[in-house]
């Protein structure tokens, strides 16, 4: 199926959901991903113009004790730096999202237009993965900046066609929305086009993440 059509279909069906995962697109590919958990969910689809640039849509919902955010945005992703070594890869990315967010606090409910940049740094080898990302998101007089730190190891090396299992610890906190940092031990499975994760945070809430590249 034509990649443009796939992208459009994803755009049409993604009307009710959920920040960016590590971008791993290659030129002319479409990548779709979703995450579902008790307090946070998102759906995203993007098209890679090149291995350095992609654009797409992202719809997300983020719930805390008193706040609930629902946002939909168009985003542009630019790779600012990549260092390819024989056994490692290091990246610095800039996401720029623009869209509308609904902020609900108790019975108060407001919509805001927003522009939100995210800077992400990641480093990986065949056995080690690490990522740190900082999103700036200010709407009205409120600060909804999100910080993510992730790190993990693979149990063993695999061949190109085998499924590679990983264990990671993910941490995430959105200011104003989250009263504490969320820690989520996560299992990751990578098999070529398919990238899946299953995690349970320290409160016992499960989360699922799936990514596929067409």
């Amino acid at each position: 199926m034509n990649k443009g059509i796939l992208f459009l279909i994803t755009l049409l069906i993604s009307h009710k959901t959920v920040i960016h995962a590590a971008p791993m697109n290659f030129k002319d590919s479409v990548t779709s991903m979703t995450t579902i958990s008790k307090n946070y969910s998102y759906l995203e689809s993007s098209y890679a113009i090149s291995s350095k640039e992609s654009f797409g849509i992202n719809i997300n919902e983020n719930k805390g004790d008193t706040y609930k955010l629902k946002a939909g945005e168009f985003f542009y992703l630019r790779r600012l730096m990549r260092v390819n070594k024989i056994n490692s890869q290091t990246n610095l990315w800039l996401f720029t999202g623009a869209g509308m967010v609904n902020v609900k606090k108790n019975i108060k409910d407001d919509d805001y237009l927003y522009l939100s940049p995210t800077l992400q740094f990641d480093y990986e080898t065949k056995r080690i993965f690490s990522l740190i990302s900082q999103q700036i998101m200010r709407v009205g007089n409120q600060n909804f900046d999100t910080t993510k730190i992730e790190g993990g190891v693979s149990f063993y090396e695999t061949t190109f066609n085998e499924t590679q299992p990983w264990i990671l610890l993910k941490t995430r906190k959105t200011k104003t929305v989250d009263s504490k940092t969320e820690y989520t031990p996560t299992l990751r499975f990578i098999n070529k086009s398919l990238f899946g994760e299953v995690g349970v945070n320290l409160d016992g809430d499960p989360s699922f993440h799936l990514m596929y590249t067409f």
């Binding site: 791993m24 697109n25 290659f26 030129k27 590919s29 291995s51 990549r82 260092v83 390819n84 070594k85 056994n87 490692s88 890869q89 990986e124 080898t125 065949k126 695999t158 190109f160 066609n161 085998e162 590679q164 990578i190 098999n191 070529k192 086009s193 398919l194 990238f195 990514m211 590249t213």
Partner: peptide
Amino acid sequence: GMVCAFCAQG
């Protein structure tokens, strides 16, 4: 830089 199958599939 070829460290993961998901990325190398391209």
